[in-house]
Design a protein around this nucleic acid. Structure first.
Lengths: 335, 335
DNA sequence: GAGTGGAGTCGAAGCGCTTCGACCGCCTTC
DNA sequence: GAAGGCGGTCGAAGCGCTTCGACTCCACTC
């Protein structure tokens, strides 16, 4: 491996000069700069990451903790993770991938070993075990999600309350008075995952306001689970004409089951989904939906991290405004 | 941050002794060891990753290059990535997440900066641009996938040729004589992604052997694309009774369209899928399928990396044997 | 009872980089 | 024309760790 010293020798300058050319922290004459840059290219020099980290106590690495859960909708996670990784690169950072496996201890390990300059946590629960450790470590961090106590934390998330409200409003405007909410798997609510609960809160509040009746049912993905859930929904509320679905793995099963039961979408039943665009547009019926802006979330999280590391930080909660796109799955309530 | 020196002082020994306690590279008396370990715990010491990397030229980081493509089936990628990350941790490694964005240059950057001890490449193409750089860099690497030239490379992958053959064999045994293959998006073949081509090769070979006629059509995911593809298939080969699907985004659309056209699965038409277990079991019809062992692939890749880094390396191609599980989507060909 | 060897420990020399203070000209400025 | 300032460069001191050689002590051996 080529070292700084070798570059310096090759260019006929001192090591510190080369370092300053690289970092731009002191002014360097054009001629020297060019000579150094030429040497760098000719020798194929790359700074050693470890040495750099040691000397500067900056690793240029952001740790990303992704959940291990299988009950979460994976593509969204992946999309966020990829957005984080690519955005990070544009700011000169690499991303370290941590899975939930290790649990809260990972926070301590990363902070303690100075493996990363900052952390991004995904799938944050209302009372997340990692948060105390995070605060204690004093490390820069950004959450994707919204815990109960956000004091001193920077958070990025879709505004799920507004999302829920928006869905109800849309259905209500179309004249629907009985709505069923097909939610995430029960386990998601049990561990108090913020986004799921906030969506339901938003739905309930808007329903109350508009005088719409709401029935909320968690649902595992897949056909079998959806069939059972659907049967119970119609059992309890035969007059249901609107559905809000917040479980991507339940979308297609729901559409199919409705069709099989002779309920036409959107003539008899309207369906609003909260899901990534791709799911909404590729489903068997083009779905009216509120998109989950996974990329945007990943991007914003990194930008917040970078800002905080640059000292321009803000401890704020950034909620992205939901947007509802009307497609072919919603229409006026049947008379 | 607590340093080695502070631990040493606290325990009343020299820094090197603490280091040897940590690494176990020299024998240490039980009493000293205990004293040092106690100090480490009391002070909450974590070795600094950068310093360690610098002094030992080992980072304990494995770089994972995931593709950026959206035409790949994302959940499989995610599953592999998570398996890689968790397996790596059990061997004391962390994982650096690189996206395709940066292209082949990422290989050079990682190797040059000694950011990682080894690399795992996913989504390898037949003539992958990254391979020359990889060979040149001399860095330890394992591929998930199979390029045309595997000389000097360690590869892990499902045996897709055998997979294709297995699917044909199953359908042939059931008496099907005309088979359609619904493949990945055209772009996947255009860039010569090994697994897609090898599957088709395996299918063709076995078809020839068993006297089955095969029609292969690439297909984007979603309903619209699938509808078009299906129409064309029946246009060209009205006698088609068996389908092999290697595009998860086409599975559900295919099943639905067949149903809509009044073709019963499996009475009129048999469908074999090449997809993750979850897709096969959660589809509207429980699918006969060959599973893509994503976790196993990720795990094996890491184990190969660890073995190579420990000097126990083998430059070999490890092809996992496919397993076909018969479920409800295949049956005897109609008379 | 001197010689041998192994177990246990230490000191010091780096690993490759960043960064601080110092230095040297040269251009201003009054 | 002397004082001051600034752009440009260098030397040296670490950053926190690993690792090599050397040293000490003690239990053996013959």
């Amino acid at each position: 491996m080529v070292t700084l010293a070798e570059v310096a020798q090759h260019a006929g300058v001192s090591a510190s000069t080369v370092s300053y050319v690289l970092s731009g922290k002191r002014s360097i004459s054009a001629s020297t700069r060019e000579r150094v840059e030429l040497s760098i290219r000719q020798l194929g020099y790359h700074p050693n990451a470890g040495a750099r980290a040691l000397a500067s106590s900056r690793t240029n690495i952001i740790a990303l903790m992704v959940p291990l859960r299988t009950d979460m909708y994976v593509p969204v996670m992946m999309e966020i993770a990829i957005a984080v990784a690519t955005t990070a690169r544009t700011h000169g950072y690499d991303v370290l991938l941590l899975t939930g496996e290790e649990g809260p201890a990972a926070v301590r390990r990363i902070a303690g070993s100075s493996l990363a300059d900052a952390m991004i946590l995904m799938d944050v629960e209302m009372h997340d075990e990692r948060l105390p450790l995070l605060r204690e470590s004093g490390r820069t961090a950004v959450l994707i999600g919204l815990p109960a106590d956000t004091a001193g934390l920077t958070c990025v998330d879709l505004d799920f309350e507004a999302t829920g409200a928006l869905c109800v409003e849309h259905l209500s405007d179309l004249g629907h008075r009985e709505i069923a909410v097909i939610g995430e798997a029960a386990a998601v609510y049990e561990r108090h995952t913020g986004f799921a609960e906030r969506t339901v809160d938003g739905i309930r509040a808007k329903a109350q306001e508009t005088g719409v009746r709401v029935l909320h049912r968690p649902c595992e993905g897949g056909y079998a689970a959806m069939a059972g859930t659907l049967a119970r929904v119609y059992d309890e509320r035969p007059g249901t004409t609107g559905f809000i679905v917040q479980n991507e793995a339940a979308v297609e099963p729901l559409l199919n089951l409705l069709q099989q039961q002779g309920r036409a979408v959107p003539e008899d039943v309207s369906v609003v989904a909260i899901c990534p665009e791709q799911v909404a547009t590729q489903a068997s019926v083009r779905l009216t939906s509120v998109a989950i802006p996974a990329q945007e979330m990943g991007r914003r999280a990194v930008e917040q991290v970078v800002a905080k590391l640059a000292g321009r930080g803000t401890d704020e909660v950034e909620l992205l405004a939901p947007e509802l796109t009307v497609r072919a799955s919603t229409g006026p309530a049947p008379a």
